[in-house]
Write a protein that binds this DNA or RNA. Sequence first.
DNA 1: GATTTCACGATTGTTAACAATTTATGTCAA
DNA 2: TTGACATAAATTGTTAACAATCGTGAAATC
Lengths: 253, 253
Amino acid sequence: MLPNQSVSKGLIVSIKSRANSQDETDFSTEPDENLIVERIYKAVMEQRLAPNTKLSEARLCETFGVGRMRVRRALLLLSSQGIIELHSNRGAYVACPDKAEANDVFAARMLIEPPLVRQLAEGPNEVSLALLTDHIALEDSARARNERTEIIRLSGEFHTKLAQATGNKFVSRMMRELVTRTSLIVGLFGSSENASCPDDEHSRILQAIQSRDPEQAETLLIAHLNHIQSGLNMDVRQQPQDDLATILGQSLR
Amino acid sequence: MLPNQSVSKGLIVSIKSRANSQDETDFSTEPDENLIVERIYKAVMEQRLAPNTKLSEARLCETFGVGRMRVRRALLLLSSQGIIELHSNRGAYVACPDKAEANDVFAARMLIEPPLVRQLAEGPNEVSLALLTDHIALEDSARARNERTEIIRLSGEFHTKLAQATGNKFVSRMMRELVTRTSLIVGLFGSSENASCPDDEHSRILQAIQSRDPEQAETLLIAHLNHIQSGLNMDVRQQPQDDLATILGQSLR
DNA sequence: GATTTCACGATTGTTAACAATTTATGTCAA
DNA sequence: TTGACATAAATTGTTAACAATCGTGAAATC
């Protein structure tokens, strides 16, 4: 059965939830399967898709209402970004970083982000910094409304937008990948409290940048990254949750 | 015609040339289409595949002797790495960076590589540095034999291996992508002389690292990157060469 | 009762035909 | 000759059927 297009009632958390509009680039006109990639990326950023969750082709086909080919292409792209892992003949699973990989991620961020914020504090990027101010507002707003998933995602995306503020395509891509990985790591090794970044640290970093104080900006950022990392417990990982647990309405039959 | 497997006599430069063995990881056991990706990656690194060269599916199928699906997956992966560009309904073309992108690449490298070599000079990475010594030997050897393509590729891969010496997967991936892009840029905007890095700069950088002199290592590397960039002429680009010009034995008919 | 074997079902991998689009060709008229 | 237009060829995009593989559970054996 399942001749390339099936119908059942299972649904993955809610990857389908249409974008909250208002922010981010618009993918509705994109000719590609980038929509699928973006949805899954977002679900991972919001820690709604737990590591090791199986993403079966058939499920994704019905979830997004597209053919198998699109789904497979999307999965290949996601795997190339390290968001999922493709096991031959066994399917796609949300990436599940181990201790070593977690260290690599933070080491890479410690290498890149300090010079990055330093450069932002030095250079005259007035325009792009406005977007960061707006972002802080979004974070506060989400915190005020206590919207967990929004808080988590925005908390990570602050760092992505720091990179975007450089206007450098490559730096942006790198940071996006590292931040995504960080989100998975925090979901795995973090307690439920430190899922998001400490409240005002982002705004203080931004202030240092706007004050043209590279030293202070760098210092604050390093401390910030250390806070995140030290909030993790590398030994007791939040149970890997294979499939079923993370799905809400599993197909009952 | 062309029912998924055709036969003609055209061949792209020589993407098929089997790996020179001896160095790099072995992909012969890989279950994937990574072989195709690696071959094209290598051809780009050696500047045998010029920017804007069209990579038609049929051609690649016969070149590698695989089905269309493999080729398409490989092309998708290559596009996600920015090595090629996929135009809807028009095919795959080797990426052709413009002036702005070139600046971004060097800006990104200026951001990442200095802290990278600094860290290498600080930390105690005895083992991984041995690989770099070997690499310098390879470079010298290739220079002695005057093997142009080898020189160009090794010249770029030195920087990739610097990143690999950190043992950090993510840093390695980033650098690899940046170096590949650099290769395209040098091919486009560089004169035929500075296609490879100045002779002894690599070895001097490595010496500084081995001497545990972070300052010196960073200084040398920055100068090195500046040398490369200043050797470019951003205005008169080496003619973009659309397809035919870059192919040797074009199908005559 | 525990372990192994086998067969079935479900899922992924592959192929080939078909559809859609673009590019090339050739004709005709200005 | 040049331009527009229509037709044909070549190339890419999509779909559906088929093949291969893996996981599961039942049956059989020790």
